[in-house]
Amino acid sequence: MIQTHNLSFQHAPTLETLRFPDLLLEREENLLILGKSGIGKTTLLHLLAGLLQPKTGTVNLDNIALHSLSAKKRDRFVGQHIGVVFQKNYAIRSLDVMQNLEARLFFAGLKSKRERLHDLLEQLNLAAHKNKKIHQLSEGQLQRLGIALAVVHQPQVILADEPTSSLDDENCEVVMQLLLEQAEQQNANLVVITHDARVKPLFQNQIIL
């Protein structure tokens, strides 16, 4: 369950304060947040992911107030309970596909089970590439690795920042299906932030910033 209250953020003292509507998602509920570029979509996502400190307001994840935790505890908490699919599918470039998944779990303080990692790569059609370095992967493979990294630790919330913006219609569909599938499998909330109208039909809950 994820809940925000009275959330606002200011990038710099001279800049306008961004205010965000309150959100409430019950378990397994998904949400699509639509908005034009520059309106603060990524800021909201980073607030939800605990990467930014809000000016006012709270983010509660399973009744734990994210921003009242100490920095160190918050890092660990976010690492364990939230998975983020970034706009560009960043993975650690010096490691290969499998090592990236292992590092993801290592930093969250979780144990990695090889079979589970293998299953996940199988599901995302990456098993054949598990020993490849990041720069050897194609765009589509990178996208799928991004999803794998967001779900490998079985988070409660999956946040996706413009996951489809650079994809054609066909791949857009594939990626969204994978995200929804994984969220359902893990019983996680999926929050997608995008300006991409193609995604709209897939979500019941939608808000516009």
Binding site: F77, G79, F107
Partner: peptide, 11 residues
């Protein structure tokens, strides 16, 4: 990469 590790929970 380093920022990414932070989101993974690295201190």
């Amino acid at each position: 990469d380093l920022a990414l590790m932070r989101t993974y929970g690295a201190s």
